[in-house]
Design a protein around this nucleic acid. Structure first.
Lengths: 218, 218
DNA sequence: ACGGAAATGAACCACGCAGTACATTTTGGC
DNA sequence: GCCAAAATGTACTGCGTGGTTCATTTCCGT
């Protein structure tokens, strides 16, 4: 009855595709607006599916946020995996790692913003995710290895703390992206010209090399 | 009629006090929860006055946020004014400035968080505030002066960019506070022990001194 | 001492937005 | 082919929250 005049809706199912779609939109929305700033309706409207599916797959806004955070981490750590430093001498390897980190952060502003947002929330969700903790601990192994080799060859000062070194590297690389808006607003955009960025990167590399070479701190 | 049984309310006016009260609560609430995360009702409940007064004096939530941001900046820049470096030789002065900045940021987490939040919002409000721009440009004068003196005495390499140097100093000092939650969550809280913090601070001072001393970058 | 403006109180409202109910279609196992 | 389970569409709701209305009290100039 009336089937001819009424519209018949049909679709083909694609659970994994739908989840991926939602997550990628969620990452960019949360990264852009923060947790409370992001709107589930907006996220939904930017996917090829509906709000209904978000709640179907992710439970609630918070669940979606957590999964988006993990997705951002996974993507960025994937990019790091390609870096092979074992064949380089320690100083070269370290220089390369620092320069790479600097560039890699620049290329992943959404990831940086997700971490900023997490820090505003005191890293509550980050701390709760075993997935992320594992990823990060793995990320420091490369650095620890370089330190070990450098010390063994007598090139680096003894007693280096890989975590402290990672802190120094992250500080510059992260800050460069995270505080770009405020820095540009106050001092002008010149420091973010490609040329100036290369300069900052090289300066950072040199600073890190200086730290491992000299005997500083106690 | 009935004036004896009905409660009579009376109060003494204090416009400036009320504004100060509201602003100080607003800073801590916005710093803690971000713009959309903060609740006007919560802010109101923590003041000695009412939500009505917030709208009376600040117009809307956004107006309150802007004023809170400026208040945070004013307070922190005030603390910096006490630092007198003119009587120190350039290297000493720079070392002192870096160490001071590092500590000063640690002591003002709410300010750091306000800047983080601004950066999430692409520094939109910060850019719109002439007050804040003036404050920051003034803040770099100290550093520019040290650079000038250092170069004149042949102690620093020529062509130093005070803004780039400020970037390096800020990166470490800011990151140390801004990313403490995520860093602690992932690598443990050890790096934020007093002892380790002193170590990081000294390491940062040395790194900055290395930058001005060597001829790095182009 | 009084009149108008500034300052404050108490209740109220409109609506944006997270989350749901219910119906319908697809899919895969037997 | 049939049926239960998974996946999707459509429409709806309750309430948290930013903002307002109206009345009342304090203060200050003359």
């Amino acid at each position: 009855m009336g089937t001819t005049t009424e519209e018949r809706r049909s679709w083909t199912q694609d659970p994994e595709g739908v989840k991926r779609d939602i997550l990628s939109v969620a990452v960019s929305e949360f990264a852009a607006n923060g947790f409370s700033g992001a709107r589930v309706d907006t996220i939904a409207s930017r996917t090829r599916t509906s709000k209904r599916m978000i709640y179907y797959y992710f439970g609630d806004k918070h669940g979606l946020y957590t999964r988006a955070l993990e997705a951002a981490y996974l993507k960025v750590r994937e990019g790091e995996a390609s870096l092979d430093l074992d064949h380089l001498p320690p100083a070269k390897a370290l220089a390369r790692l620092v320069a790479f980190t600097f560039e890699h952060h620049r290329e992943n502003p959404d990831f940086i913003r997700m971490v900023m947002i997490e820090n505003i929330h005191n890293a509550k969700n980050l701390a709760a995710s075993q997935v992320i903790r594992d990823l990060n601990v793995a990320a420091i192994d490369k650095l620890a290895d370089i330190c070990r080799r450098g010390e063994a060859e007598g090139l680096f000062r003894p007693g280096l703390d890989p975590v402290a070194l990672h802190w120094q590297i992250s500080a510059a690389s992260f800050f460069n992206v995270s505080n770009r808006p405020s820095f540009s607003a106050i001092f002008g955009p010149e420091l973010y010209d490609e040329k100036a960025q290369v300069c900052l990167r090289d300066q950072t590399v040199e600073a890190i090399l200086a730290i491992v070479a000299t005997s500083t701190g106690k």
